[in-house]
Amino acid sequence: MRILLQKVSEASVTIDGEVHGAIKKGFCLLVGAEDSDTSEEVEYLVRKISKLRVFEDADDKMNLSLNDVDGSVLSVSQFTLYANTKKGNRPSFVDAGDPAHAEKIYAEFNQKMAATGIPVATGVFGADMQVALVNDGPVTIWFDTDHK
């Protein structure tokens, strides 16, 4: 699994001109899965992200988690995180998970993240989405379970 995390002051996903999910302070997560991903990868990422301390404390140190700041998550599926650009100018997506499997992993990730008590808004798997966000910091962190 791959997740690109951005700490945001706000984020939203719009589908067909209507806002489908929106958050204020929290994380905008772009989530990709491959065929070998299982519940083990999901649980690892939920644990890492739900406890990630990147919000400033009273001393302006990145020391607080989502729970500490009443933050939320906007989770957006994104198979293009598995783009292979080694050859030519057109990316290959053969490493991205089969859509049925990737959708299952994405749903499981969202359910387990919500089970931590963190509010989770989502996009729609496979939809054409417009994502808007204000990256706070900026803070952008890459997670790849192949390199945990």
Rank of each mutant, 00 (worst) to 15 (best):
residue 103 E to C: 04
residue 79 F to S: 00
residue 143 F to P: 11
residue 6 Q to W: 06
residue 75 S to W: 00
residue 92 S to V: 03
residue 35 D to F: 08
residue 102 A to I: 03
residue 78 Q to D: 01
residue 124 V to F: 08
residue 70 D to A: 14
residue 32 G to Y: 10
residue 7 K to C: 06
residue 3 I to R: 08
residue 64 L to I: 11
residue 34 E to K: 10
residue 109 F to P: 02
residue 39 S to L: 13
residue 32 G to D: 09
residue 32 G to L: 02
residue 48 K to H: 07
residue 108 E to H: 06
residue 113 M to R: 08
residue 90 R to N: 06
residue 4 L to S: 04
residue 138 P to C: 00
residue 111 Q to H: 03
residue 131 V to A: 06
residue 67 N to S: 08
residue 140 T to R: 06
residue 5 L to A: 02
residue 17 G to C: 01
residue 118 I to G: 12
residue 63 N to H: 11
residue 82 Y to G: 01
residue 71 G to W: 14
residue 6 Q to Y: 10
residue 13 V to L: 01
residue 46 V to F: 14
residue 22 A to M: 04
residue 55 F to S: 06
residue 33 A to L: 05
residue 63 N to Y: 07
residue 41 E to M: 07
residue 119 P to W: 01
residue 65 S to E: 01
residue 120 V to E: 01
residue 143 F to E: 13
residue 10 E to C: 15
residue 41 E to F: 09
residue 16 D to Q: 12
residue 79 F to I: 00
residue 39 S to E: 14
residue 84 N to P: 03
residue 8 V to A: 00
residue 145 T to V: 12
residue 29 L to S: 04
residue 59 D to K: 15
residue 82 Y to C: 00
residue 40 E to Q: 11
residue 21 G to H: 09
residue 13 V to C: 06
residue 147 H to G: 00
residue 16 D to P: 03
residue 45 L to Y: 00
residue 74 L to I: 04
residue 7 K to V: 11
residue 92 S to A: 03
